[in-house]
Amino acid sequence: MEPIELDPGEYRGTYKLVGGRLCLDFVNTISWPGTEQEHDWLTPPENARRWFAAAGLPFPRSKDTDLQALYESRRMLTSVLAPLAHTGRPKNAAVADLSKAVAKAYEGRVIDPATLAWIWLPPHSATEALNPILLDAAELVTAGNHDRLRFCPSCHWLFDDQTRNGHRRWCDMADCGSRDKARRYYHRSKS
């Protein structure tokens, strides 16, 4: 997996699409959530544009991007998806918030007369750009295999374990897997 060219600012790291689903990769736009190392990959606004492009999603052309809508949606998605990844259940209020957002997101799709397939209308705001992500989250919550929804023990990113045997342990073997193995080797050799 190749890193996406996002401006890391002061942070020393890279961002990769490792979640296996749009909604998980969007939640993972915060590295090391809830720690001193926490880093938000959606700032500056140009990073948001680059992230959406890398994920294959359209983003509004306006220079004035409302990042607050992205942050709020990411918090909402995290409040639903993180408990599932930790084999728990999200709070009813969080699911209700997602349900409201998903109902609104459906308004952003139309049936293309030429192909008879769903297509997304071009987004005019960051909120509208989130529509495919919200519907992906709804699909994961309602019909996805929650047993395959995991969190990385190293960085806490979420991922859909799509391996054949269902034993994927880290978000990315090259980064977190190597770091975790090195840390365990160090502790074993010190004992």
Rank of each mutant, 00 (worst) to 15 (best):
P3T: 05
P3D: 04
L6A: 15
G9R: 10
G13P: 01
Y15P: 01
K16A: 12
G19C: 06
G20Q: 08
R21V: 09
R21N: 10
C23M: 13
F26Q: 03
V27K: 04
I30C: 06
S31M: 01
W32F: 03
W32G: 01
W32A: 00
P33M: 08
E36C: 06
E36F: 08
H39T: 03
N47L: 12
A48H: 12
R50P: 13
R50E: 14
W51P: 13
A54K: 10
A54H: 10
A54N: 06
A54E: 07
A55T: 03
L57M: 00
P58D: 06
F59H: 08
P60L: 11
D66V: 11
L67T: 14
L67F: 13
Y71E: 15
S73D: 09
R74F: 06
L77E: 11
T87E: 12
P90F: 13
N92D: 09
N92R: 02
A93K: 00
S99P: 01
A101Y: 04
V102Q: 02
A105N: 03
E107N: 11
E107C: 07
D112E: 11
P113M: 04
A114N: 07
T115H: 07
L116S: 09
A117Q: 05
I119T: 15
I119D: 07
L121P: 14
H124C: 08
S125F: 08
E128A: 09
A129S: 15
A129H: 13
L130P: 01
N131V: 10
D136A: 09
A138S: 01
A138V: 03
L140W: 01
T142H: 07
G144M: 02
N145Y: 00
N145P: 01
F151P: 03
C152I: 05
P153L: 00
W157C: 11
W157I: 10
F159G: 12
D161V: 01
N165C: 07
R168V: 00
R168K: 08
W170Q: 05
W170E: 03
C171I: 08
D172I: 11
M173E: 12
D175A: 12
S178Y: 11
R179P: 01
R179Y: 05
K181T: 08
A182T: 08
A182R: 11
R184K: 07
